[in-house]
Amino acid sequence: MARVTVVGAGVIGLSIAHELAVAGHRVQILAAQDALSSVSGVAAAIWFPHGVAHTAPVLDSAQVTLQRFQELAGRPDTGVRMRQGTVLMRRADTDTSWTRAVPHHERLDATQLPAHLVPGTGATGVACTVPVALTDVYLPWLHAEVLALGVTMRTTEVRDLREVLAQENPDALVVAAGMRSAALLADDDETYPVRGQIVRLANPGLTEWVTDNDNPQGLTYVVPRDHDVVCGGTGEVGSWNEQVDPEVEQAILRRACALVPALAGQPVLSRAVGLRPARSSVRVGAVEGYDRPVFACYGHGGAGFTLSWGDAARIAALIGPA
């Protein structure tokens, strides 16, 4: 393989293009929009395998990505920060298999949690330090890194993979277009959107994140970045609505401020909605039915950043060196 076309320029597509270029391939990206305009730009981008089954390949990819992000966090210009925080757990059967990818974590019982976080619920938690990517810094940085490796990009809406194969004539093609991927691959009828709405508040000086996935009022997370705090969220399965809902935003703010009282009264800086590409399992592998190698890499749910480098490495291994 020498010429590879990647369809999609979100965090998954850019990471794949990066690893293929490092392996010596000539890489071209085709995408209708840049990473910041995609669902990648909406993400809180905290390392956590949310919205995907915790299978062995998923946890392996998550661990590879964690290690890469730890390295990148040593360079402030990348926009990757290592941040301490707490995963709240309200159910005894909460899946904690993800912790095997995190070398240093601590199980917390109800007595070790601040009383205001889980009043009367008896919830437990996991304290750990994981990467947070500042999307407005990390995605442009990754884009620039990819270009520096010689990757070319063209803005276009891909509608037919066979057309791309005929016109671009690559040796291999990778479909990493998030929600668009299933429409491009006729053999997939199980991918569906999960609508996520977030609101970004001014940061009053917070550094620690907290997630409360089983909050009875709805999915709740607070992820501080350098200058703002991403507050979420929603997990509306099957919704294609990409418009901000003011009532949903108010509910998010009530939950976030109950979780982190210091957020009360902070001004809203921005708001956004993104459609997470979900399916029963992340799809990483070869696709049959084409006259040359075609590979899929999508269906990451809310774990695109978390699996990005690991799944990019899996695709690069499948294609092999140049």
Score class of each variant (00 low, 15 high):
Leu139Asp: 07
Val146His: 00
Leu149Tyr: 06
Pro170Gln: 07
Ala166Asn: 02
Ala172Gly: 13
Leu161Asp: 14
Trp141Glu: 00
Asp171Pro: 10
Asp171Thr: 07
Gln167Glu: 11
Leu149Gln: 09
His143Tyr: 13
His143Asp: 15
Pro170Arg: 05
Pro170Phe: 03
Glu157Val: 12
Met153His: 15
Glu163Ile: 09
Val164Arg: 11
Ala148Met: 03
Leu147Val: 03
Glu163Ala: 15
Glu163Met: 13
Thr152Cys: 03
Thr152Lys: 04
Leu139Ile: 05
His143Met: 11
Glu145Lys: 12
Ala148Pro: 05
Asp171Phe: 07
Asp171Ile: 01
Pro170Cys: 08
Trp141Lys: 00
Leu147Trp: 01
Leu165Phe: 07
Leu147Asp: 04
Pro170Gly: 11
His143Cys: 07
Thr156Val: 15
Val164Lys: 02
His143Gln: 11
Thr152Ala: 11
Ala166Lys: 06
Ala148Asn: 13
Gly150Tyr: 08
Thr156Ser: 09
Val146Asp: 01
Ala144Asp: 14
Val164Thr: 13
Asp171Met: 09
Val158Leu: 06
Val164Ile: 11
Leu147His: 14
Asp171Lys: 10
Leu173Cys: 04
Val146Glu: 01
Gly150Ile: 09
His143Ser: 12
Pro140Asp: 00
Arg162Pro: 02
Glu168Cys: 11
Ala144Met: 05
Ala148Ile: 09
Thr152Trp: 00
Arg159Ser: 13
Glu163Asp: 15
Val164Trp: 10
Thr156Asn: 06
Pro170Leu: 07
Glu157Trp: 13
Val151Pro: 04
Ala166Thr: 03
Thr152Glu: 08
Leu165Gly: 02
Leu173Tyr: 08
Arg154Gln: 14
Met153Leu: 15
Asn169Gly: 02
Leu142Thr: 06
Pro170Asn: 06
Val151Phe: 02
Trp141Asn: 02
Arg154Leu: 09
Met153Glu: 15
Leu173Arg: 01
Pro140Gly: 00
Arg154Val: 05
Asn169Tyr: 03
Ala148Asp: 14
Leu142Cys: 07
Leu147Ile: 04
Leu147Cys: 06
Arg154Ala: 05
Ala166Arg: 13
Thr155Glu: 14
Glu145Cys: 14
Leu173Trp: 02
Glu168Asn: 05
